[in-house]
Design a protein around this nucleic acid. Structure first.
Lengths: 205, 205, 205, 205
DNA sequence: AATGAATGAGTCTTCATTCAT
DNA sequence: AATGAATGAAGACTCATTCAT
């Protein structure tokens, strides 16, 4: 019970921080506001986190950890690279949709300032791109996808993905993000040469 | 002459601001540092700009204005949508390369905080995407490019483009950004269905 | 047994506090650190002491009590004022040497701030000076020592004594404090007119 | 005029700081209070001093500089070591009397905490003791004063001096400090063997 | 008696902005 | 137009103290 309360508090702080960081950005969020929203005293934050910056990192890692686990799980079940890529996209969008505040931080708030933060950001994009690269390589090995620079391609795919999510966030999540999955998948699969434009056109029909 | 000096100072402030905002982010840059780097007194900034935030917007618009003009000029000379898209990509990368500090701000620093900034950001992405959408629509009309949701596609293309530039910025501009043009063009054109993967493969040979 | 444990804890807290107060000063020592060093929980300190300040006073009185008792005992055994003064000096230095942390607090840390502390400090210096004054008065009555303002003289003696100890503390107790006893005694006894400089020179031989 | 104002402000801050540091101690003085007493805004302190600690050091050095200069000047005019020692004592007390707040800091407040402060403290006591040592050495060379360990003796003299001043400060400067000069001089000169107790007794008559 | 998580008042310090010169 | 000293509001963080367990 006591244990639970503790966990509860940490979670509440992270959750409040995610909300504010996502909404107004790191620098426009005061620790006082986070504490208030989390229903704890100002000093309590510093029991769980060494600094505001560390809290940001925690928010981030919390999100990233779950995110990556679920993505890897999700694609593991898929039989072939194309299916994996489809799953990656749709699951990725789903995860973002579940947690729009963290999504926003993940996609943009971290591109700021300090070295600590930069490192974390890099690591996170890397995590995402790593998965993409794995799928791309498998696709190339199987001949399902055209020959391409895996590194660069992964970055582009990730960029297209990000942009789609950011549009949605910028629109205050006013439409289901999943509705973009088909278009995005199409664009990416064709771009990867997984399917000719004819095939895709037919399937669409 | 006096006029020129004035212009000179304004420019110097904008330039210094662009440098610092791009390097350390908006919130980690003090107006004092900008003034120092621009070789003006602290108060002088407030003769040219109402606030720090307005300076950020100015930095941004300066960059965006030139950027858009040159992009529009560049594609105007191209004969067909595919060539325009190619030009858009290569010229876009060139412009970013010319001005890495502003590029950084353009791509990431602005995704922060206040309403004022958000509006500017939105407008800027919009400006970029507008051009892309125009080209896409023309492409669809001509049948050069497959049928697609222009809005969504433009966003994805822009995302792929952004991601490529950000990778380059994150790598401290250690390689020529132009070297990424071919790969990016390939990915986008194929994704748009402008060319089959065979055609592209042949051309590469 | 339970009683003993309690006493044990109180002692451990006082001892830890003395160490830290002496080393880093009252204000640079947190109750948390004291608790940790004493091997008790943060709240436990407040079972034994009403406040941090009261703990300081306790540390101080603990030290002072033992100190004064032993000084009084020590000089009681001596036959004449000169011998008493000698004993006072050598025993005083010994006691300081035994307990350098408390010595440091006694000599300098207490010259700070609040009324409560000031009172305690005054009382402690007073206790020390009282003993000195008693010896001086006896010396004057016996004609062993020249006529002087007892109050002022006691203060000066105490100052010379303090300074000697502080030098030693400042040198990280790198030499035996007792080594200073002879020089200090000489200076004081001559200053008191207990002995001509010739007499003292002879005795030294 | 402008220059004067600036100097004025720095001085006012130092003066206010000296007052509070001396009265309540460094840690019990807030920068806000200093600013208020100095008639400046809170932030203004940080234009002149990098930190509160640096302000303390400045207060201290200001005092020490003038102090030492005047002491050296004062003894330079005296013909022989004994006269110099007398002058040192009376002038020292005078200087302390002129500036009781700084005196208090000089004598006790600095024996706290941080390395920065410790260094300054050491340096200051050293400055004082250096002068004393010089005079003592000259005295020994001339045969005016008995052979003794100069280092240790200087420390004791300084201690006796300090103690006299602190008593006065502790008594809220309720009597002229100069009234202690004779007693202190007597004690020290006799202690140094400059004069027999008979001689001193006669002179007193 | 003991714990240690939680509190929240208190502080130093920063920095955008102003304004007298 | 330009300066830069001065402002003072704001914010991260600390820590003595409390209290439910």
């Amino acid at each position: 019970m006591a244990r639970k309360r503790v966990g509860n508090k940490r979670e509440r702080i992270i959750s409040a921080a995610a909300k504010f960081f996502g909404e107004r950005g790191y620098h426009n969020t005061t620790t006082a506001k986070i504490a208030e929203a989390a229903g704890v005293a100002a000093g309590t934050i510093y029991i769980y986190f060494r600094s505001k910056e560390e809290l940001l990192v925690a928010v981030f890692e919390e999100f990233l950890g779950v995110h990556m686990d679920r993505l890897r799980e999700g694609i593991a079940r898929e039989p072939d690279p194309e299916a994996k890529m489809r799953r990656l996209i749709s699951l990725g969008l789903e995860l973002m949709e579940e947690n729009p505040h963290s999504a926003r931080i993940f996609l943009s708030q971290l591109r700021q300032s300090t070295e600590m933060i930069k490192m974390v950001t890099k690591r996170s994009s890397r995590a995402y791109k790593d998965i993409i690269e794995e799928v791309l390589e498998e696709g190339m090995r199987c001949g399902v996808c055209r020959k391409l620079n895996v590194r660069a391609a992964a970055s582009m795919l990730f960029g297209a993905f990000q942009s789609t999510v950011l549009d949605w966030v910028a629109d205050d999540s006013s439409y289901p993000l999943a509705s973009q999955a088909e278009e995005l998948t199409e664009f990416i699969l064709i771009g990867l040469g997984c399917r000719s434009e004819e095939a895709s056109r037919q399937q669409a029909v």
